[in-house]
Design a protein around this nucleic acid. Structure first.
Lengths: 187, 187
DNA sequence: GTGTGTCAACTATCCAGTTAGTTGATAGGC
DNA sequence: GCCTATCAACTAACTGGATAGTTGACACAC
């Protein structure tokens, strides 16, 4: 048994909660399962986080930070940016699931300040690149950004029924499709 | 009070369940609420459908049929097809929510036969149009179809945080973005 | 021994699913 | 036309198990 360490316990709880929420969502998640998988006790969850909802908040906070850090925008290579973001999603499928659960089960939440700031920053960077003629300005910068983000999430959001017919499994091929899609948007 | 009518009651239950599942998902939905909103009794749900899960099946069955019928593929105007599908989603936001819940909460389900057949049919039509040089064949037919479907769902799947920055609310503008995105894929 | 981290056991509530019984339509006998 | 048997549609009240959240006691570090 490792020695007592509040930070480590807290972290194990967040990790276990991330997995649980990604799989079952907020309503479907079970607090007992999270505690068990974190090798902790249910009372710890209430001690550290206060409620199931606030535990989800902590998971979400953690997630937003990670996603923003994972794929920094590169205005000189937007197809490459989309490809890298797509790779991140492919490597960690729980990211897209959590983003989706959050949208469905927390639709009333106010926008996440840090996320909005990061998005605004990226949109501004694209607008500037358009002004400098590095990128075509046919599309509004914000719309272009939304389309790029959306394209990067393609494989994580495509219906299994479509995948049953299309069946593109090779990660390189998937990445290439995302890249060339974004490239097509920039012509 | 309307006379007793099994079919009508069944339909009211499916309608109420559709709204409930769209809002709260499978785990979050409450059988009592569905019964109340359908002006029916909970026991009728179990009489007609057997379980909460099988009620969801009925809703899903109904939904698949509607979506397939709502926007028939037109290989001569794929941007228009995407725009029309996008309009359908805009007019009925519960469609995308249900599709999303289904993907998250029923990821283990076998592919829906009718949906797969419809997708296969559409992909075949695109492949044929490519062979006839009506559409460029740079992209595999299935991949192209997946991209078109994905583009049509853009506004229903874009994060509220992104929308807080981008803020494209006008339906005509939204439709036009979807249309031109698909057009760009076909160059 | 004092305070923080940990835990088993408890409680109150919620909720899917059941049951036993009622109501309303209808058809056949007279 | 009216009574009544039958069945399907419907309902209120109940049950048992699951589940979020609580409590009070114990253990280890200092």
């Amino acid at each position: 048994m490792p020695p007592r360490d509040a930070d480590a316990t807290r972290q194990r709880l967040v990790d276990a909660a991330t997995a649980e929420f990604a799989q079952y969502g907020l309503a479907g998640a079970r607090v007992d399962r999270i505690a068990a998988n974190a090798r902790a006790n249910k009372a710890q969850i209430y001690h550290y986080f206060g409620s199931k909802d606030r535990l989800f908040d902590a998971v979400w906070e953690n997630l937003v930070t990670q996603i923003v850090a994972a794929a920094p925008l590169d205005v000189d290579d937007l197809p490459g940016f989309a490809a890298r973001l797509s790779d991140t999603y492919a490597a960690r499928p729980e990211l897209i699931r959590l983003i989706t659960w959050q949208r469905l089960e927390r639709s009333g939440d106010p926008p996440h300040e840090f996320a909005v700031a990061s998005i605004q920053h990226n949109v501004d960077a694209i607008a500037k690149a358009q002004k400098d003629k590095v990128i075509p300005d046919r599309l509004d910068a914000g719309v272009l950004y939304a389309l790029i983000i959306h394209a990067a999430a393609l494989w994580g959001m495509t219906s299994p029924d479509v995948l049953a017919v299309v069946d593109v499994r090779d990660p390189d091929q998937r990445r290439e499709i995302v890249r060339s899609t974004v490239a097509a948007l920039l012509t």
